[in-house]
Design a protein around this nucleic acid. Structure first.
Length: 150
DNA sequence: GCCAACGTTGGC
DNA sequence: GCCAACGTTGGC
């Protein structure tokens, strides 16, 4: 089983929203690297660290799991959608997503500050300079440390 | 609101 | 294929 971190702006979609919905298609990803990971590398049951970004206290706030095989992101074909992509061919969809499922909230958020301060988490992709990926792989050792901090 | 970093686009 | 311009991300 692999481990992932997925960012979401809590104003747009928070861990509480996922808890309420139970399950959610991870739509709107328009970055090829992130798409490739969902399309090629994620497996049902993989664990996801749910991270709040672009907010007051950026932090890992919960755990989710990959809940579907990859499939085309429907929002790319809907002209009324923010994430509409006129250049995506329905016969060869450009954007692929997976569903994610709520598992639990952390007992308390593990903040970006703590992650940066922890020596064992030095080489996490999350804190790498210039990293802008909204989906990234997480090593088990790093995941274990983070869950040890909650 | 600023700005660094980086991806994407499009002209040539 | 190069590269300047532009857009986006996301922490601060």
């Amino acid at each position: 089983m692999a481990y992932w971190l997925m960012k979401s702006e809590p104003d747009a979609y928070s861990i509480d929203d996922l808890e309420r919905d139970g399950r959610e298609p991870w739509d709107g990803i328009r970055n090829y690297q992130a798409r490739n990971m969902m399309r090629d590398d994620m497996r049902i049951g993989d664990e996801v660290l749910f991270y709040h970004s672009s907010c007051k206290i950026p932090a890992v706030v919960g755990i989710a799991r990959v809940a579907s095989e990859p499939y085309p992101d429907p929002t790319q074909f809907d002209p009324d959608e923010k994430y509409y992509d006129a250049k995506s061919d329905p016969d060869d969809p450009r954007w692929i997503l997976v569903d994610v499922e709520f598992v639990r909230k952390l007992d308390r958020p593990v903040t970006l500050t703590e992650i940066k301060e922890h020596p064992g988490l030095d080489d996490m992709i999350l804190t790498r300079r210039g990293n802008r990926l909204s989906i990234m792989p997480v090593e088990k050792a790093h995941r274990d440390i983070i869950l040890g901090l909650e």
